[in-house]
């Protein structure tokens, strides 16, 4: 049943000018899972995320989020988005950002203030409320980006390289938070090219040159490829022929 999936992608084709980034992608992601999109740089991970968000027009195919067609404002309302580049306003504070996005999602000012405080505590930025973003470290920026993505209690979280550029301690904390979010019923889709992070996902989509080369749980992929590590598994599947588009 389509509405049973958090994301349903059928025959998705995305390109920029003459360059085709995703030639034909079919995938369905059930609710309440952490799904990792694994692939090297330039494989089409960010393009896939943006296509699901509805902020990259696609040439063919269809995408639905909780049964809502993409692009649509109702689908967007269900998604929390953590962009690869933090896309923050340097002159504003963390609180300014959270209030802004909370108000955009339809919260009243008082409720937005409460939510901003909750999230600043959650990501450990509650002591940095008076600081401009220009004075934030890379890790602080990522934490704020995560808080922004969570501001509207989204049932689907799209995380584009969420741990890139942050230290191992914070990375572990992020993944603990992702697991906690999953436990609360949230569906997470995270792109990564870090293999040990990918191992923490319930399901992995391996992408190479815009094509889905493997799809399954970590144990399934290791078993199918007959390899001991995800890195070897990825190289194994890369060697196989790309799936044909209908």
């Amino acid at each position: 049943m389509q509405a049973g999936y958090a994301i349903q992608i059928t025959g998705l084709q995305v390109g920029y000018g003459r360059q085709v980034v995703l030639p034909c992608l079919n995938v369905a992601i059930p609710r309440g899972r952490i799904v990792g999109v694994l692939g090297p740089s330039g494989s089409g991970k960010t393009t896939l995320v943006k296509a699901i968000m509805g902020i990259t027009p696609f040439q063919a195919g269809s995408v639905t989020v909780f049964g809502q067609p993409v692009p649509s404002l109702s689908a967007m309302a269900a998604i929390g988005y953590m962009a690869q580049n933090d896309a923050l306003y340097d002159d504003l504070t963390a609180t300014d950002h959270l209030l802004f996005y909370a108000r955009l999602s339809g919260m009243r000012t008082a409720a937005a203030r409460v939510r901003a405080k909750e999230l600043l505590n959650f990501v450990g930025l509650d002591k940095e409320t008076g600081k401009s973003i220009r004075d934030f470290s890379g890790g602080m920026r990522r934490r704020l980006s995560l808080a922004i993505a969570l501001v509207n209690h989204p049932p689907l979280l799209m995380l584009d390289e969420p741990t890139v550029g942050i230290d191992p301690v914070l990375r572990r904390k992020f993944w603990d938070e992702f697991t906690a979010l999953k436990a609360s019923g949230c569906t997470l889709l995270a792109t990564t090219h870090v293999m040990d992070e990918a191992a923490r996902c319930d399901r992995l989509l391996m992408i190479r040159e815009g094509r889905l080369i493997a799809d399954g749980s970590v144990s399934e992929l290791l078993s199918l490829s007959g390899t001991a590590t995800l890195e070897d598994a990825f190289l194994h599947f890369s060697g196989e022929a790309a799936k044909e588009c209908d």
């Binding site: 967007m76 998604i79 962009a83 896309a87 923050l88 955009l104």
Partner: peptide
């Protein structure tokens, strides 16, 4: 260029 417009377009704002 800083991506804040795209980030804004990822919210349900017309």
């Amino acid at each position: 260029t800083t991506g804040t417009l795209e980030r804004l377009l990822a919210t349900p704002v017309k």
